[in-house]
């Protein structure tokens, strides 16, 4: 028996305690995923959790739905094939910032452009946690990692802004600190037809925190909490202030037909023999 509303029926038996460090946000995000699965009454048979490589990429080990653990950076491309061939499946893609936007950035852009009906839950902890805290495409300029010990000379990319400009139907951002809001946005993301992205700005006290004077999980989480502002509040900030904060909540919400719907139209044309 699992507690109603806990979502724990989606947790694989005998795999806890999980492998993630104390203070990591992954466990919180996974728990919310389970609760949303339950809220949406997802059946294991019709759900595929696709992961990449990295700390967050190990999440499939804890899930009882169909699972797919592929190669680094390509999760969205695998997911595209799964969803394109069987549109009835709920395809949830779990990627870190390394997977999603650094090695896999091109697939991210094109999944959004293609508007494939999958949901990407991107846990962004600003560095490569599993391999020892190296710099990633979301490490802010000037911050320290195990490969930017003199400070990061490069700038970070805004995952949500990129998703929006590349054509995603739904884009939201949250943090593990704002669990309640995160759950609302995650449910919206799962429910949305077309490509949906939920970025979770998440603490990595073990590496990123340690390297940037946030030695305890609490300090690291506070750093995130203090920079997260609801979108309306963020929008009203003086532009000179914006660099110190990021907006959370729903950022994009539209209903452009998804890839499978459009391809159905192509099939109808092809079957009538029209090529141009």
């Amino acid at each position: 028996m699992v507690l109603l509303g806990s979502g724990l029926q989606y947790l694989k038996e005998g795999v806890t305690p999980h492998m993630w460090c104390p203070g990591c946000g992954n466990g919180i995000v996974l728990a919310i995923i389970f609760r949303v699965f339950e809220e949406l009454a997802y059946r294991n048979e019709e759900t595929v959790v696709v992961t990449g490589i990295g700390c967050w990429g190990k999440a499939d080990d804890y899930v009882v739905t169909n699972g797919f653990h592929g190669t680094h950076g390509r999760a969205l491309a695998f997911a595209t094939g799964i969803k394109a061939f069987n549109p009835r499946l709920h395809v949830i893609v779990l990627m870190g910032d390394g997977d999603c936007i650094t090695i896999g950035g091109n697939h991210f852009i094109h999944a959004a452009r293609r508007n494939i009906d999958v949901t990407a839950i991107v846990v962004n902890n600003f560095n490569y946690g599993m391999t020892g805290g190296q710099v990633s495409g979301t490490t802010p300029a000037g911050m320290y990692t195990s490969t930017t010990v003199y400070a990061n000379p490069e700038r970070d990319v805004d995952i949500c802004a990129l998703a929006a400009v590349a054509g995603a139907n739904y884009v939201a951002r949250g943090t593990p600190y704002h669990g309640f809001e995160l759950e609302i946005n995650m449910k919206e993301a799962f429910d949305k037809k077309g490509f949906s992205v939920l970025e979770v700005v998440s603490p990595c006290p073990t590496h990123y925190g340690k390297n940037n004077a946030m030695k305890t999980p609490v300090e690291m989480l506070k750093w995130i909490k203090n920079r997260a502002l609801p979108k309306a509040e963020y929008d009203s900030l003086d532009p000179s202030m914006k660099d110190d904060y990021f907006p959370i909540g729903k950022l994009v919400d539209k209903d452009v037909p998804d890839f499978n719907a459009r391809y159905d139209e192509i099939r109808a044309r092809a079957m009538k023999g029209r090529t141009a």
Partner: peptide
């Protein structure tokens, strides 16, 4: 598309074989 199947031009060959692998596990 005439046969009810699917053609997708992916963003590169890495994605091409990845989508093929995904579709295969979905039964294609």
């Amino acid at each position: 598309p005439k046969l009810g199947g699917m053609y997708i031009q992916m963003e590169d060959e890495i994605a091409g074989i990845a989508a093929v692998i995904g579709a295969s596990l979905a039964g294609a």
